[in-house]
Lab assay of single mutants.
Amino acid sequence: MQRVNMIMAESPGLITICLLGYLLSAECTVFLDHENANKILNRPKRYNSGKLEEFVQGNLERECMEEKCSFEEAREVFENTERTTEFWKQYVDGDQCESNPCLNGGSCKDDINSYECWCPFGFEGKNCELDVTCNIKNGRCEQFCKNSADNKVVCSCTEGYRLAENQKSCEPAVPFPCGRVSVSQTSKLTRAETVFPDVDYVNSTEAETILDNITQSTQSFNDFTRVVGGEDAKPGQFPWQVVLNGKVDAFCGGSIVNEKWIVTAAHCVETGVKITVVAGEHNIEETEHTEQKRNVIRIIPHHNYNAAINKYNHDIALLELDEPLVLNSYVTPICIADKEYTNIFLKFGSGYVSGWGRVFHKGRSALVLQYLRVPLVDRATCLRSTKFTIYNNMFCAGFHEGGRDSCQGDSGGPHVTEVEGTSFLTGIISWGEECAMKGKYGIYTKVSRYVNWIKEKTKLT
């Protein structure tokens, strides 16, 4: 034993070699072989497995989906700052455009905790909710729209109204504003409101030439003092309507412009014939205590009207009353817009006519005020429907199939267009061939041609 100890002390290297040989010859039971080890760690190889990531292109799944990435790591994937920024906006807080917040056709661009709407022409605001041009839906104005110097929408209202708090709607500024039905039992019968379409306001006024200088022999019209197929109006439903009495009662109609003036057809009036105007009328054979009678003290036909040349060209006249009318729910003026808007309103496509005229061709006159909704007829169809001249200051309205029309005794009465609950004068009943005849239409004086003249002559002093 002493000898062994001496050998170990003198030859430590020998001992180490012996131990190493023993270990190498022993069977290893701690580690699995290569094949079995792979069965336990069965993990798919990654895209760049075996390579240094710093030297390969980034992978979106590896960089940002398996674990949260930084902007720089995302930049490695896209290799483009702009594309990385677009991805980053949604990656950080989701897609803010998912709810489609942009209105009126706006395009949404996502941002971090926010979004941006790219608005089409005519709109602005956070969600493109603000109209900035009158060309689109009248700028959301209830009545009139004008573009300011910086191309912003400025709404306005006709006389007797003021802008509401929203700067879009119009509200009454006087007790009985024009064009409004205020009798409670008839307010439910107000005709369907007309909503502004998209309009090209630059070209809204037709490029028409008034044929002022045409000389033409007097034409022989049949029954051209021209509501057939209409309905009984309720008291106060058309408070701007008046009836004219002269040699015979209810020979023509008219509309209240203001307390002192009536507008009617020029062919209705004769110099030297006494005319009485009755406002607030409903049943011409009954006294309903809503009527107001006034005498006409002055007749002003349009300066281009000449019955000797043509009885229905420039067929418009103004009547001055001896005493002002007292405005109330049964006696209310009709609204008159400017030339541009009167023309736009007419193009809405349908209007209402009213009167006490004959209820059928050569038949009896109506006792109760009649009204009828009539569609506008395109000019080409209008011209083809008659052998008589249709001037540019006239328009056609009615039904091709016949059966409904204005008729004798309705002449001078109103053709009105309702705009968001307020009625505007767009025409004056003038003439036609018979009444409600198939293929024939009622012919009306186009008020847009005469609004400046009306307003100039009827100013209240």
Rank of each mutant, 00 (worst) to 15 (best):
Q2C: 14
Q2L: 14
R3K: 09
I7K: 12
E10F: 13
L14H: 05
G21H: 11
L24N: 04
E27F: 04
V30D: 11
L32C: 06
N38K: 13
N38C: 04
K39E: 11
K39P: 05
N42T: 13
R43E: 02
G50F: 05
N59R: 02
L60W: 04
R62N: 02
E67S: 02
K68I: 07
K68C: 04
K68T: 07
C69Y: 00
R75P: 01
T81G: 10
R83W: 05
V92Q: 14
Q96V: 11
K109C: 04
D110G: 12
D111A: 12
Y115D: 04
E116L: 13
E116M: 12
W118E: 15
W118G: 06
C119H: 02
C128T: 03
L130N: 12
D131F: 12
R140H: 10
K146V: 08
S148G: 10
N151G: 11
V154F: 12
T158D: 04
E159V: 08
R162K: 09
E165P: 12
N166M: 02
S169W: 06
F176T: 07
T186K: 11
T190W: 12
V195K: 10
F196P: 13
F196H: 13
E208M: 10
N213F: 06
T215S: 09
S217L: 06
F224Y: 15
R226H: 13
D232P: 14
Q241P: 01
V243F: 11
G246C: 04
V248W: 09
A250R: 09
W261N: 00
I262E: 01
C268R: 00
C268L: 01
T276P: 01
V278T: 13
H282M: 09
E286K: 09
I300Y: 06
H302P: 03
N304W: 09
N306A: 07
N306F: 05
I309H: 11
N310A: 10
A317L: 03
L318N: 01
L318I: 05
L319S: 01
D322V: 03
N328I: 00
Y330V: 05
K339A: 15
E340L: 10
I344E: 13
G349R: 06
S350N: 15
Y352R: 06
S354L: 15
W356M: 08
G357L: 06
G357A: 15
V359K: 15
V377L: 08
C382N: 02
Y391L: 14
F395S: 02
G398I: 04
F399L: 11
G402L: 12
Q408D: 15
P414R: 02
V416C: 06
E420G: 12
W431Y: 13
E433F: 09
C435H: 04
C435Q: 04
G442M: 14
T445W: 02
T445R: 01
V447K: 00
W453K: 00
E456W: 06
E456K: 10
